[in-house]
Design a protein around this nucleic acid. Structure first.
Length: 955
RNA sequence: GGCGGCGUAGUCCAACGGCAGAGACAGGCGACUUAAAAUCGCUCCAGUAUGGGUUCGAAUCCCAUCGCCGCCA
């Protein structure tokens, strides 16, 4: 096929030129060529796993978006950090190794090369001097080092931050370490031969491969992320993340406020004798240390309605309390439960099942004797593994009580009213479950109180008597951090006499042993156990044989990019403070730096950790004032953020066209982070957790890793279905680029629609964008008889006329604003308008063409480089300054005003742009059509919107 | 079941609460051509999922319903 313009020649040419000139390399502070006068901008893509399948057209959307931003920011005078690397440890490579016997390092290297090539032909301007790979010993040395930081730290609740274990005064340090060993039941996947984190188990199956997963107790390394639950919620506040992602994280952490309540348990004989205990009896019971079950409830106000109790079938106490008569039924039920997954157990649609244990507990608020059941709808992992059942006010308890004829007592009423409710077993199906809030009834001490007050009062009452206390519960579990794999980071830990201890730092990196057989042992013993020599650390000590999960390397990669070659530290302090600096974002462009200087701030804190920003002269709205930390707090414990943040979308613009972003505190270091929603919870939560630990321990200067997060939407196949091999609708970028060129590919991906939105691929759509680029080409080039291209004689050094100036400056304004808000589709549309406006002009002013090329450069870098060179540009266009616009070219002397009657368009008039309200209204009344519409009617009101419209309300 | 997001021409998508159209695809017509492709020009096409509400004025804000998508159960 004949090419509309010679992209096949110019694209490789410029890719080679950028590589040779290291155009997109950015030096670090202190290195030659570093310009300290320029502000930094760190724009990051989510870390790719280089799979054997290569890229499909959905993957690069985010990469193209960040590339446009990176190129744009460079032209705006920023030092732009825009790196790429490889999250190369992981299961697929290992399983391929098992199948083929080829070492995963070999296949990984091959996949990385393929991925890199695919990214290069898209023309992405990465700083490849900073390329990193998690499987590189120079990299995972520091992953292991960070693990040791976690191992050697504990979370001090008093200071609300991590501290070295040396500050821990308790007896057993091992019980508080942020990295600890646990024997708890884990998700064991026999097919994969490894344990999985809760997050890696979907619907009872492994996320990778969809294999069945079972619960099995094993010794595992855990990370104490739960210690950070509250901070992980609170510190989302200062971030520019989509509301929906923040919500996902909050829901995942799952904070709920409620109370722990202790229920004394009677043995079978005790239960015989005592029909009812009093609540003071329960107090005594607790005081003398009698057996009891603790439950967590978010509704302590319903305690009087707790008519029975349910334990998870695996609950430790079940063995102790079950009566002889009930034992066979209980044992049988437990066996059946063990075969079910958590999902099967909790699914609401399924019928509830359970068995009575024969034992009774005492409801501490009224001394009532209530039966204890076991049921699989109660999970050991949530809360305390036991619940108080309030059938009148909880759907699941209600269902259960109906099935087993247990008493249902109403204790909350939607309307305030006098007491009066049932205590008898449920044989009245008309009773409805009410789970909402209301007013307490049948609840003695809290009768009549609205739910919120009832909760407070009953909790205080329990607390006074030692029967319970206010508690905050989190759904978040500690992070299962070990895997029985070969292709992962070995733990820097050795075992001696059953005790673990860390390797000294100077023994890092700990490299995995060479191994020929990567197969799981099948026993749960990791593959590393086969390396008998390697395991042997000393006479008495052996190495830990588990490896770290894939998440480990991706938890801190964004830090390593800042200083990838540093052999002495995981990230150099200067580089960290520059690239990850949480300074206020006062300068959206280099031009506005002068304005930025007028902002009062900079505490002069040498550690660069505390900033106090007071107001900002560059903030037209005058609303954004943020205060963070105090200078006397170098470790940054007081990282609460006070004040409001300026709306990002509402960035005001000065007449010179340089956005003066409001002064704002930025707790996060990466300025823009783009990736898919699939990492909304796990990766982003884990990375934030590690970052906070490193921050607390004084290794980092900001409390959060990612300031602004954007999720790109999924790319669907041409059939509107999810792209997948099995559907056969996968489009390969290499093919698209071969046919239409990388620039067309880039522009099309951005032109399809908003970045965040899901959208279907369309080949004809690529063609349309390709036509647009060809029009740009022919604006400047002319085809000769022999088919070669030469500079068009239409391009001349003349001044654009007034109409052209309006187009030029309007386009600069639109494109600049749209790139800032990532509205790339409308930016391209604006440039199409520009091109259409000049296509038929006999003379194309050189300056206008140059402006267009600069605006288009971030989108279509190869085409614009080539044309820039043809137009006599000396240096690469990538180094050109971004054009500014002059608002005065955009205003018209006369403007059209819309005339409405009752909000409906009836006429249009033209008035001078500086016409007063009165003049506009008078002109409107002069309109013949308006006179017609208002004839004989009463004019009730006239709304005049200056420069826009006049609306006349008639009755 | 709960939470969140999205429903605008045949299609992808625009539209500070103010004339529903920036742009593109597809379609139609014309110019160029022996013809076609390419190119250039012109053009058709929706009253914004549905029903209420707020407002001088609603695609936009609020409520409900339906449909699709995501997350959690």
């Amino acid at each position: 096929m004949r090419k509309p313009y010679p992209f096949d020649r110019i694209e490789p040419k410029w890719q080679a030129a950028w590589e040779a000139a290291r155009t997109f390399h950015v030096p670090n502070p202190g290195e030659p060529g570093f310009d300290p006068a320029q502000p930094k901008y760190y724009v990051l893509d989510m870390f790719p796993y280089p799979s054997g399948a290569g890229l499909h057209v959905g993957h690069p959307i985010g990469y193209i978006a960040t590339d446009i931003i990176a190129r744009f920011k460079r032209m705006r005078g920023f030092n732009v950090l825009h790196p790429m690397g490889w999250d190369a440890f992981g299961l697929p490579a290992e399983q391929y190794a098992i199948k083929t016997g080829q070492h995963p390092a070999i296949t990984t290297a091959r996949n990385v090369a393929r991925f890199k090539k695919q990214l290069e032909i898209i023309g992405l301007g990465y700083d490849w001097q900073r390329e990193i790979n998690t499987t590189d010993p120079g990299y995972y040395k520091w992953t292991q080092w960070i693990f040791l930081q976690l191992y050697n730290a504990w979370f001090n609740p008093a200071t609300n931050k991590a501290e070295p274990v040396s500050t821990y005064t308790g007896e057993d340090v091992d019980s508080v370490r942020l990295a600890y060993v646990s024997e708890a039941p884990v998700n064991w996947c026999p097919a994969l031969g490894t344990v999985l984190a809760n997050e890696e188990v979907i619907d009872g199956k492994s996320e990778v491969g969809g294999h069945p997963v079972e619960r099995r107790p094993m010794r595992q390394w855990m990370l104490r992320i739960t210690a950070y639950a509250q901070r992980l919620i609170d510190e989302l506040d200062g971030l520019d993340w989509p509301e929906s992602i923040q919500l996902l994280q909050r829901n995942w952490i799952g904070r709920s406020e409620g109370a722990e309540v202790h229920f004394p348990i009677l043995s079978a004989t005790q239960a015989e004798g005592s029909e009812e205990l009093t609540s003071s009896g329960a107090m005594n019971w607790m005081r003398i240390g009698g057996t009891h079950v603790t439950v967590f409830t978010t509704r302590p106000d319903t305690l009087f309605g707790a008519t029975y109790m349910v334990l998870a079938p695996e609950h430790k106490l079940v063995d102790a309390i079950t009566t002889e008569e009930q034992w066979p039924a209980v044992r049988d039920y437990r066996e059946r439960t063990a075969r079910k997954s958590d999902l099967e157990r909790t699914e609401l649609s399924k019928e509830k099942t359970g068995v009575f244990t024969g034992a009774y507990a005492i409801n501490p608020v009224n001394g009532e004797r209530i039966p204890i059941w076991i049921a699989d709808y109660v999970l050991l992992g949530y809360g305390t593994g036991a619940i108080m059942a309030v059938p009148a006010h909880d759907e699941r308890d209600f269902e259960f009580a109906q099935k087993y004829a247990l008493p249902i007592r109403e204790v909350v009423s939607p309307e305030p009213r006098l007491s009066g409710g049932g205590t008898s077993p449920c044989d009245m199906p008309l009773l409805e479950c009410f789970a909402g809030e209301g007013y307490a009834v049948n609840s003695a001490i809290i009768d009549g109180l609205p739910t919120a007050e009832a909760k407070v009062k009953i909790t205080a009452w329990l607390e006074e008597r030692g029967l319970g206390k206010k508690t905050i519960n989190y759904k978040l579990r500690d992070w299962l951090f070990s895997r029985q794999r070969y292709w992962g980071e070995p733990f820097p830990i050795v075992w001696e006499h059953g005790k673990h201890r860390p390797l000294p730092e100077n023994e890092l990196p700990l490299t995995p042993p060479p191994l020929d057989d990567f197969k799981p042992t099948g026993t749960g013993e990791p593959p590393l156990a086969k390396a008998t020599e390697w395991i042997r650390y000393s006479e008495n000590a052996t190495r830990e044989t588990n490896t770290m999960p894939q998440w480990a390397g991706s938890c801190w990669y964004y830090l390593r990019y800042c200083d990838p070659g540093n052999a002495a530290r995981f990230i150099g302090e200067t580089a960290e403070r520059y690239w990850m600096g949480g300074k206020p974002d006062v300068s959206a462009s280099a031009e506005s730096r002068t304005a930025a200087k007028t902002i009062v701030g900079s505490s002069g804190d040498p550690a660069g950790m505390a900033n106090t920003i007071v107001g900002s002269s560059g903030d037209p709205a005058g609303t954004a004032k943020t205060i963070v930390d105090g200078p006397g707090d170098p470790a940054g414990t007081a990282n609460t953020i006070v004040g409001s943040f300026a709306d990002h979308a509402g960035t005001p613009k000065t007449s010179a066209g340089t956005p003066a972003e409001a002064s704002r505190m930025r707790p996060g270091g990466v300025d823009l982070y783009v990736g898919g929603t699939e990492h909304a919870v796990l990766h982003l939560l884990y990375a934030r957790f590690w970052h906070k630990v490193l921050f607390d321990l004084g290794h980092l200067s900001t409390p959060e890793p990612f300031q602004r997060l954007v999720n790109q939407g999924m790319m669907l196949g041409e059939d509107g279905q999810k792209m997948s091999k099995s559907r056969g609708n996968v489009v390969n970028p290499d093919d698209v680029i071969a046919e239409y060129g990388a620039d067309a590919f880039r522009c099309y991906e951005m032109f399809m629609g908003p970045l965040e939105q899901m959208k279907p691929w369309s080949m004809t759509g690529v063609e349309g964008v390709s036509r647009f680029l060809a029009r740009v080409w022919r604006l400047i080039m002319e085809e000769k008889q022999d088919g070669s291209w030469a500079l068009s004689p239409g391009v001349q050094e003349t001044e654009p006329d007034k109409a052209q100036l309006k187009v030029i400056h309007g386009t600069i304004k639109k494109v600049t604003g749209d790139i800032e808000t990532l509205s790339f589709n409308t930016a391209i549309s604006a440039m199409m308008v520009f091109v259409n406006a000049f296509t038929n002009a006999e003379v194309k002013p050189l300056s206008a063409m140059r402006t267009l090329l600069v605006l288009l450069n971030p989108f279509a870098p190869h085409l614009t480089e080539e044309l820039w060179e043809t137009l006599g540009g000396t240096s690469t266009i990538a180094n050109q300054p971004w054009p500014s616009f002059d608002e005065s070219y955009l205003v018209e002397d006369e403007i059209e005003i819309v005339l409405q009657i009752n909000g409906k368009l009836r006429d249009k008039i033209v008035v001078r742009k500086d016409a007063t309200k009165e003049q506009v209204e008078a002109a409107a009344r002069d309109s013949a059509k308006i006179a017609e519409w208002t004839a004989g009617k009463e004019i009730k009101k006239v709304i005049v919107v200056p420069g826009k419209l006049v609306n006349i309300v008639v009755g």
